[in-house]
Design a binder for these strands. Sequence first.
RNA 1: GUGGAUGUAGCUCAGUUGGUUAGAGCGCCGGACUGUGGAUCCGGAAGUCGGGGGUUCAAGUCCCCUCAUUCACCCCA
Length: 457
Amino acid sequence: MAAITQPPSGMRDLLPEDVRRRERVIGAVRQVYESHGFEPLETPSCERLDVLLGKYGDEGDQLMFRVMHRRDKLRSALDDGALRTDPERVLADMALRYDLTVPLARVVAEHQGKLPRVFKRFQIQPVWRADRPQKGRFREFLQCDLDVAGSSARTVEVEVLSAASEVLQRLGFADFRVRINHRGVLAGMIEAAGIPAELEASTFVAIDKLDKIGRDGVLRELATRGVTAESAASIATMLDPVDGGNDAELARLRTFLAPSPRGLAALDDLAAVLALAAGSPLAARLAVDPSLARGLSYYTGSIFEITVPDLAGSLGGGGRYDGLIGIFLGRDVPACGFSLGLERIIVVMEERGMFGGPTAAADAMVGIFDASLTRDALALARELRETGLRVDLHCDASKIGKQYQDADSRGVPCVALVGPDEVGRGTVSLKWLKTGERAEVPRGEAAAWIRQRLGTT
RNA sequence: GUGGAUGUAGCUCAGUUGGUUAGAGCGCCGGACUGUGGAUCCGGAAGUCGGGGGUUCAAGUCCCCUCAUUCACCCCA
């Protein structure tokens, strides 16, 4: 039986063209993040299990890829009395990181003395989730995170969202929305609707499905989660859409949240963020949406999500998490961040044809006229490379026509060749494949000839 | 983890109520064309029909299991 050569489910090989596309997108992300004054950070792919568990909610704990104990520790774990009741906890001591936010929180706690009081960091690294793959969802994917730890100023929210939306703008997206809500608003809604606090998390989930299952769907969902019909109806009313934009939405919510001081404070918070964003390119994208909930349990304040019409999930999400670092450090440090999902951005860009044609690996290829002239070909390639051109060398002296064909099939725009005649005259024969133009020029002028055409075609 | 759809050549797909040696287009390789790619023509290679089991005289086709892909749910980037 032949070996299975597919990578593990939900994980992918990236062929050269894939890598080039990703690098283009990553380059844009990095450039924008750096332009906002954020510093790079990298952390290990694994974390201790205790660092990760309990930070994301039950679902998150289950979707973590765990790393088993090795050797003797594995053997003794197999003898552990708790093996049957909690095997995943007993058999594993590490897990692949599930996001980049919890590792950041750990780093802030671990290296507090070495980091600036307000730490603005970006991090572009893969994360792993043992989810079932589907469109735009993978088990290994790259997150592009941007966070500020150490400040509760609302400028942080605006900076983080501005950077994320500038990335998308620069990549050519014209139709994304930045949805924004606040955990305090949600808590206030639940309080005002008379739903007991222990149903809060469950209610979040139901509310979050509004755009997918509609108002009636949310009512049904709330009922199955144990919310009374009266409370559910009250919540549904609070979610009804309003005309007139964000100000009207805030005003409307203010009437519902009157009985909840926490809810009103959260509205003030949201209003502050909107006010700071006013007049910026971000402002036109921002949409207050009381149905946005988000499942990760560490969020405490504003929460955000960026969506486009043609993808069910989001291109990115984030929020404020003022309690997470405190779990590691013992005293709370406010923090807020956003994460763009590289794969999802690429899925949409590919579907929309936003990448254009394939890109070539080299600017020119040097052919080998025959085996006796191999050294001359090597020398020519060297000369051209010294001028900064990307130059491929045909690997052998196959038939000349074949060599031209090889160059063309790889998208290399130019072939340079030295045969016996050229050696005698000190020249190079050049051909520009796209136009068919041919020329024989003195060796020293070959690079200029190529460069001139690279710019124009 | 739950549900649906789909697995035939490198790619896209045909393949009749089960019936001889499983086909096409594109791509690939070679030739026509021994100092120049793309066009045309000619020729060629390429398949454990995802894997295993079953039914049958006979299975790419029917049944079961399994694996993979994909879409949706859950949740999320």
